[in-house]
Design a protein around this nucleic acid. Structure first.
Length: 474
DNA sequence: GCCATCGGCGCG
DNA sequence: AAAGCGCGCCGATGGC
């Protein structure tokens, strides 16, 4: 993929300059917090490492590998657990080795495995994040690196330290890391995100009427609807009756999350029912999914006639009464009944690419060369979605300067802007963000004929990144 | 000591 | 017919 129109070239040019400014601004780091936390985490890891030394598994390990116990060797771990100790291996890697991912190991009920997983998680946090940040801090600031020329779709990337994969989904890890990122004195960290930008941009290409309805009608919720279908739940089950009950809100949110990230997005990216069925089924135990009255979704599904996952064998027709069969049906409905125009667009788009040998994206990039089917319909969406964000970054930075504001853009994560904003500028900044990210964008790019929305999260004055909370933009 | 690959895992 | 898009970083491993 390459910039093709003058406008696309200009976007890359202005984008590179704008990102250089973001890098130069930098992010304030709480170095004292970082030092203490690193120390504490190191001690916790050492403690657990000492604890497992007496385990029968380590004894076996040393006997098998000439007295050497290399905790980080996934090959050796697989040989011991699945090869020697007889635990059931549910999945192999690409090269045929026993897979030892958290997903696979969590099925094993053994104290060593539990400690092993804890050590792995803490080591990742320590080595990749805490020490990674430490390495980059100069005079209390970290200056991230953003690349604009490395990604196949002309998205951006970030490296050494990667600012675009900081933990957030697991609150415990997220807190430990994000507390290190702090606002400058008298300021707040503000994060402004596009909501569902890739879904919206995809709709600009395919124009599916049902998708248009989902995007324009705020009472509709595609992810919730698909979660309902996947788990055979009623609307009431996913609508917390008592919104002040945090457990009930969290329960509904978790199930919706599964519909979104284990069915809808995978399907959009070109996945199929076999993998969706597997992850949805596993999520019931790993994420402890329950009905409103506290019954496991396994029990609920059994009442609905679904007793097991199924064989997941692509060569055979899924059997009745399996999750596999159910999700196959949900997938069929999804593409033939719910989004037939989207489905049709994918087919014709792929066909056209293969026949003429190139494609042009909405933002003026040309894409050529041998691509797999899924890449053909994903690249133009991913690229153009990011270009919306990049355009916003450039123009927000210009307007901040024009109005002599002190707010600084300090980072960018594919569909979001991270800024450092003086308390007294907060309202102006949020208004300006909306103006640039939504109104100006739609004025400039008339191919965007779907609703675009942003959300903002804001920390307290002098707060840290973990303290961000949603704020209405008014 | 450098480099590439693999498995694993963090993010959008 | 094929069967999840895009990244970067870590440790282990093996070749040079």
């Amino acid at each position: 993929m390459l910039p093709y129109t003058d406008e696309a070239y200009q976007l890359m040019h202005d984008g590179a300059i704008a990102l250089a400014r973001v890098e130069s601004n930098g992010i304030r780091i709480d170095t004292e917090y970082l030092r203490k936390t690193t120390h504490r985490l190191r001690r916790r890891i050492t403690h657990l490492q000492n604890k497992i030394q007496t385990s029968e598994v380590v004894e076996r390990w040393k006997r098998k590998f000439k007295g050497k116990f290399t905790l980080g060797s996934t090959d050796q771990l697989g040989e011991i657990l699945f090869g020697d100790m007889g635990f059931e291996c549910t999945e192999r890697t690409a090269t045929g080795a026993y897979r030892t991912s958290e997903e696979c190991l969590s099925r094993i009920n053994h104290p060593f495995v539990k400690d092993y997983l804890k050590i792995k998680k803490m080591s990742k946090t320590l080595n990749t994040y805490l020490l990674g940040i430490r390495r980059e801090v100069v005079n209390g600031f970290m200056h991230p690196f953003f690349n604009l020329h490395l990604v196949k779709t002309f998205r951006s990337s970030s490296d050494s330290f990667n600012f675009q994969n900081i933990p957030v989904r697991d609150p415990e890890t997220g807190q430990m890391i994000r507390q290190a990122f702090i606002a400058r004195p008298g300021r707040r960290i503000v994060e402004a995100d596009y909501s569902g930008i890739e879904v919206s941009i995809a709709a600009c290409y395919h124009q599916d009427p049902m998708m248009m309805k989902y995007l324009s009608d705020k009472t509709k919720d595609m992810h919730r609807d698909m979660a309902m279908e996947c788990f055979k739940l009623s609307l009431e089950e996913l609508t917390p009756a008592d919104k002040s009950d945090p457990d009930e809100v969290k329960r509904a949110k978790t199930i919706r999350y599964c519909g979104k990230n284990m069915f809808v997005f995978p399907e959009f990216y070109g996945d199929w029912y076999i993998d969706c069925a597997r992850s949805l089924w596993n999520a019931i135990s790993s994420m402890d999914l329950k009905t409103r009255d506290g019954r496991s979704l396994y029990v609920h599904l059994r009442e609905q006639g679904i007793n097991e996952l199924g064989d997941l064998n692509p060569k055979e027709k899924p059997r009745k009464g399996t999750m596999e069969r159910h999700i196959q049906k949900v997938e069929q409905d999804f593409w033939t009944k719910r989004f037939p125009i989207y489905d049709h667009w994918k087919k014709t788009w792929v066909k056209a690419y293969r026949s003429i040998g190139y494609m042009l994206t909405k933002t003026g990039f040309i894409c050529q060369g041998w691509l797999k089917r899924n890449e053909i319909f994903n690249y133009p969406v991913q690229g153009a979605a990011f270009h919306c964000l990049l355009r916003s970054l450039i123009h927000l930075q210009r307007k901040l300067k024009k109005y002599k504001m002190k707010s600084l853009i300090i980072g960018q994560i594919h569909d979001s802007l991270v800024s450092d904003v003086p308390d007294e500028e907060l309202d102006d900044f949020l208004g300006l963000s909306r103006e640039v990210m939504v109104d100006d964008l739609k004025d400039d790019w008339d191919w965007i004929n779907v609703p675009i929305e942003i959300e903002a999260e804001v920390t307290p004055v002098d707060g840290n990144w973990f303290q961000k909370e949603e704020m209405k933009i008014g």
